[in-house]
Design a protein around this nucleic acid. Sequence first.
RNA 1: UGCCUGAUGGUGUAACGGUAGCACAACUGUUUUUGGUGCAGUUUGUCUUGGUUCGAAUCCAGGUCAGGCAACCA
Length: 551
Amino acid sequence: MSEEKSLNFIEEIISQDLASGKYDSILTRFPPEPNGYLHIGHAKSICLNFGLAKHFGGKTNLRFDDTNPVKEDIEYVDSIKEDVKWLGFEWAKECYASDYFDQLYAFAMQLIEKGLAYVDDSTAEEIAQQKGTPTVPGTGNAFRNRSIEENKTLFAEMKAGKYADGEKVLRAKIDLASPNMHMRDPLLYRIKRAHHHRTGDQWCIYPMYDFAHGQSDSIENITHSICTLEFIPHRALYDWCIEQLGIYPSHQYEFARLNMTYTVMSKRKLLQLVEEGYVQSWDDPRMPTISGMRRRGYTAESIRDFCDRIGIAKRENIIDLSLLEFCVREHLNKIAQRRMVVTNPIKLVITNYDKGEEILHSENNPEDPNGGTREVPFSNELWIEREDFMEEPTKKYFRLGPGLSVRLKSAYIVTCDNFEKDAAGNITTVYATYNPDSKSGQDTSGIHVKGTLHWVSAKHAVPVVLNEYDRLFSVEDLSNAEGDFKDYINPNSLKAVEAYAERALAKDALDARFQFLRKGYFYQDTNSTKEKLVFNRTVTLKDTWAKEQKK
RNA sequence: UGCCUGAUGGUGUAACGGUAGCACAACUGUUUUUGGUGCAGUUUGUCUUGGUUCGAAUCCAGGUCAGGCAACCA
């Protein structure tokens, strides 16, 4: 018997709506503005909206909220579609608010005819001033009393291009004294001569968010319109428009957006990082964008799992980056191909190995009994990690040092006899003897060692580059940090290192997921070529030895 | 000195008047040919003051704190 997972508050509402017969089925929507790339916060919304539909047997539309042509671009539309698909979701309809411009214009005329909207000639500053403050009611102006006929004519002229940008706006006539600032005669339309990525130069007036979003929901018969907390005060206006227009009553519900430690989650800030060169692109693997995470090696499955675990609620939150890392490690541990790569090499010479070389076999994935093995060439000269040798080992050090023995993964047990240093005192070569009876899988030596090292045969090694990423920012909670968020950028968020990889890696598929033994999970970068293999570190392995050392 | 949200361990999230649970993090131990994984375990919490009740995280009243709202942005 599986324990029933408790419902979040939105699922609760939907179950009740379905049980009461209010709806036969539900329709949700994911409504990004195409003015930037999607990030992990959007993934939360995508998983929520599509997940709800899946859970309750409904559908989800993808709708582009493209009512502000100066900020929007087709590049963003394309990337958004790609990201949603990659995350594993299929939308029922691909919609655009701009497809409803004619309908929206007619809605506005309807409001004018009901005496509920008027053309205002005031400047932005005047309007702002006349709105009052949260504690002081707004004041009207003469334009508020224009006749219905005059308003109709004026609005039609606005559409026809008779007026300059900013010369006039259309406003709803609601309540200038409302305690909700959004109800103090909100703007419905503004004049803006800008090229729209879909409607071109057909329009010079564009509806505001509040006069587009709810109406679009209604046109599509969205049952549950889910958005983030900052839209709570807009809900009164959302409902007002629907009621006055007498159109399909979609309902808005709000949840808390995602925040994460050590990163930012605002398109404006992310755009700044790109434009000012702090990262290379929107899909830079350090970015919290879907495309960046994809390039870094995150799997769609792990992101979905993450979104599932963080939950949906109304309280502000900041999620530990470690939860995201846990999710991706958990998935990658199951599917990643194990390979050996040495990043900071010293030479290990096996003095009694006189076979020249031999082919050994190593499991591709100990988690997967059907994962098979691969061939790994072994010889008397190997690369091992510099940190795997210590001249004067401490008590808890399980690796190589004078007189110490270790297992070479999938190979033999070796014992260190000697080592060499250069003039500067750096270890250059370690000498060891191997035990021929300790071959992996057929070990009859009876020797037990505590440490196992990864290694690469020197003459078979393939040079590769590893991009080792660290968190983008150096403070946990950017919202509590004083000053400019860019002051907290981690200057060491990317370290590109040269490394020696085992031969098999050169032949592996481009999109394979790897675990470089004892180093972390890696994924081939989009710029990687056969001539120059480049891997991005998705996430390190958990490292309890590093913790031990800090003590 | 307006209106709207919200407040449960370090971080999230459950408990719908009846045993404060789960996950991540942290810490033990154990297994391990990855100091990985697995397994077992430990630590840590109901913002506050009253009230209702046999019984309150939950209901009521007051307070405190945090966030949002006054873009021709979404």
